[in-house]
Design a protein around this nucleic acid. Structure first.
Length: 320
DNA sequence: TCAAACTCGGTGCACCGGAG
DNA sequence: CTCCGGTGCACCGAGTTTGA
């Protein structure tokens, strides 16, 4: 067939479905297409609907010549031309409506539409293409990040918590957030009313002493210049090294260190089974006055004395 | 025109992490 | 602990491009 170029317009199965599905499955003399890509897509769709394979005999910028390979063969389990580009065109409206739609749902939809059960990977590739269509290129979007400058003014905190997380762990379903796999260093402040405020974050390639030093030095300079601040963190070597640098401003009396209670609790459960005892330990750690601490710690003592012994191995000012 | 080189799509295998 | 979704990697084969 001879190709004739028309003005570019956006087109996909969703827009066209209501228009005329027949045009996707039958050809007519004189039929026009936007470009070669659309011709190929229509030929593929035709062969899929009619359950036949074809071979490309000639293909250049103005000619596309295919020949049917097998007449009369029907009910095949798969179709070579039902590739991820064809699937992409079909699922794009679904992705535009909900990018979190599962691969299994898309597999079912394509099976219902084309009559072939496609592999997980092939549908997954089609979904990736559709997601890029919706959100744009990941790398380009990520490179735009430095243009976004965040300015924050807060009340001076009495304690801060520094931790790392990754975008996968923040519970965000947005495919963009999940794609950019970096480590996020975060500083959280706790005020006297137990409110939690995110005061700084830093996106790094990996968690190490260098990235922590950079983050902590800027944190000290801009956010926490006051004395006797309590720094809560896990026992990661990168944080430890960055905090213990003598001229880093994070050693006593400028700052004191404490363990993250979640980290302590996780270690506790490695030695002792059962969540109830762990909750007692956590309650004791969060107690603001000595009487409350004694209350929870006494209950823990009646549960199992060795649990208290385990807790007493740590200095009180590091975890209570 | 044809063969070689190259590109791209698809798949199997293995592994990881989260959820139940 | 198992299952499932997601992903990296290597490999194969089909399709496309290139150059003689």
């Amino acid at each position: 067939m001879r190709l004739e170029r028309l003005p570019d317009v956006e087109s996909d199965f969703g827009d066209r479905d209501s228009q005329d599905t027949a045009s996707l499955t039958e050809f007519q003399v004189g039929q026009q297409f936007q470009n070669k890509e659309e011709v190929v897509l229509c030929v593929k769709t035709y062969s899929i609907y009619h359950r036949v394979e074809y071979k490309v005999m000639e293909s250049d910028h103005d000619t596309y010549y295919d020949k049917c390979k097998e007449f009369g063969n029907s009910c095949r389990r798969d179709h070579r031309k039902l590739d991820y580009h064809v699937i992409f065109a079909f699922i794009l409206p679904m992705i535009k409506a909900d990018a979190a739609v599962s691969i299994k749902v898309l597999q079912n939809a394509t099976e219902a539409h084309f009559g072939f059960r496609l592999t997980y990977r092939r549908v997954w590739l089609a979904k990736q293409k559709a997601v890029v269509q919706k959100y744009g290129n990941w790398e380009e979007a990520y490179n735009e990040l430095p243009r976004w400058v965040l300015s924050v003014k807060i009340m001076m905190p009495g304690s801060i918590e520094v931790l790392k997380t990754s975008p996968m762990q923040v519970g965000d379903q947005d495919p963009f957030v999940r794609k950019i796999w970096k480590t996020l260093l975060v500083a959280i402040a706790h005020d006297g009313n137990s409110n939690t405020v995110h005061i700084a974050f830093f996106l790094v390639g990996g968690e190490n002493a260098e990235s922590w030093s950079f983050f902590l030095s800027h944190l000290l300079q801009h956010m926490t210049p006051q004395q006797s601040i309590l720094v809560i963190s896990d026992r990661n070597n990168g944080i430890k090294a960055a905090l213990e640098v003598l001229d880093g401003g994070w050693v006593p009396p400028a700052a004191y260190r404490a363990f993250r209670i979640k980290h302590v609790a996780a270690n506790f459960t490695l030695s002792f089974k059962g969540k109830d005892a762990m909750r007692l330990l956590v309650n004791a750690a969060y107690a603001k006055i000595e009487v409350d601490f004694d209350y929870w710690f006494d209950i823990l003592r009646t549960e199992d004395l060795t649990m208290c012994d385990w807790a007493n191995m740590m200095e009180y000012d590091k975890w209570t």
